[in-house]
Amino acid sequence: MGHRWDFASVLDNHEALLAGAAGTLRLFAICLALGLALGLLVGLARSARSAWIRLPAGAFVEFFRNTPVLVQILWFYFALPILLPFEVGKLAAAALGISLNSAAFSGEIFRGGIQSIEPGQWEGARAIGMTPAQAMRRVILPQAVRRMLPALTNRAIEIFKMTTLASAIAYVELLQQGRLIASLNFNPIEAYTAIAILFFCCLWPLVRLTYFLERRLARSD
């Protein structure tokens, strides 16, 4: 246990870390936006009346919920390009894997949220002449989103954590840069500890936010 900690050797590489942070944030932003947007579509499709819409959406959810994200990312990076006439970049492969996986999970959150709204709300909206789309947008979703907020922030946290998987295909993000720094400076202890602390500091506020939202929701129900 006589290790002398030397974080200076990590901080000397702050440019590499910054590049990693930028990569992590870019991937996170893309996956969050895509994952939630697709998730909403999937959730709506899963609540649809027509089996032609409902069943494929269900199959999508089952497939992506029941396979590991890392497998999906590697599939999109190594396997998909063979079927396509063009290359799939690292960012694209990672974003595809994480976004589709998140779409499957958040789709279930949206579906559950929409179904948790009492039928009376639909009837009330229809009674004042709203179309189903209007009722969904103006009456159901605003209420459902409030209830789904804790689960959705939780999803965001999961997405943030998943971005590290992109390092498996050498996409430049924080963990990948940590690995680089560790191998260049022979300081894996400090490098990986610093990366862990960085992630913790980014995610801890989000975790607190989730707790807060859960408590608020529990109180209001």
Binding site: I157, F160, K161, M162, T163, T164, L165, S167, L175, G178, R179, A182, P188, I189, A191, Y192, T193, I195, A196, F199, F200, L203, W204, V207
Partner: peptide, 14 residues
């Protein structure tokens, strides 16, 4: 609250 891959690397390399 930390990514599992970071934990794994920490336990394996550090």
């Amino acid at each position: 609250t930390t990514p599992p891959l970071v934990q794994l690397f920490w336990f394996y390399f550090a």
